[in-house]
Amino acid sequence: MPTNNHPHPSEVTPESIYMNRRSFIRRASVASIGGSLIAGGVWARHKNAPRVEGTSDDELTPWETVTGYNNFYEFGTGKGDPKENAQDFKTDPWSIEVSGEVSEKRTFSFEELVDGLTVEERIYRMRCVEGWSMVVPWNGFMLKDLIEHLGPTEDANYVEFTTLMDRTQMPGQNSPVLPWPYVEALRLDEAMHPLTIMVTGVYGKKLPPQNGAPIRMIVPWKYGFKGAKSIVKIRFTKRQPRTTWNEAIPREYGFYANVNPEVDHPRWSQASERRLGEFFRRDSLMFNGYDEVAPLYEGMDLSRNY
């Protein structure tokens, strides 16, 4: 196990260690609620666990939780449903249609689209709008690189992402919980931000279907639902596209959906969050702690543009 506190991002800890760590984490958490059940040895190992670069106390969420606790309503609304229902999901062959205000307007195969883009590991906090969070080592490339390849026109102000619509493979789409297919979008400058990535893997492995295989978007300073999964369409638009949760419940889910501890959800506070596996809540951070994106929203009233 690495002993320094700031491992290089590519220093992927072998999975066996993650798998064992889940029980350490649990025991350590239990100890922290008052029982002195556990000997000091566990604590020592706990402290040496890999950490997110640049932050002091963010520890990776175990693989099992990252791939077993998912909101992906196409496969059911329960947190365990996606893992259960997505196992036979076919991601090969996969094609992605690029359209709208863009020069490379056509359908790409997945391989064609990602070919030549540099995949790197990014360890990001993931904050769900429901008030829980994870720390995930994604593998992906900057969306910016892809967009530059595709060449948006002068009129492109937004990028829209659409998830696959397939009622036989995605049983959740038979239920009218949301207006299908799932659509999410970003302002072009948000999409071009170097923190915004397209993800094809996690923990150094191919992205599992329950996490949005074969390709999904991750915008770490926004609530998790912005990260469209299993993307089949990318469209560049002049006007702000309609997005699924915003359309379903506009009062609760805005277009921007930036993590913001000062703007509560109507039914719960966003000031704090529970890191999965922990017992007590921790303070949520403005922009999920990614302050470098603040200039994107300069002059905007974020309590209205939630």
Binding site: R22, R26, K79
Partner: peptide
């Protein structure tokens, strides 16, 4: 506390939930 040894449940991602 015991990772479901007796009741055979899965790993609990969010114990408080």
């Amino acid at each position: 506390l015991l990772l479901g040894q007796f009741s055979g449940g899965n790993f609990v991602d969010d114990p408080v939930e």
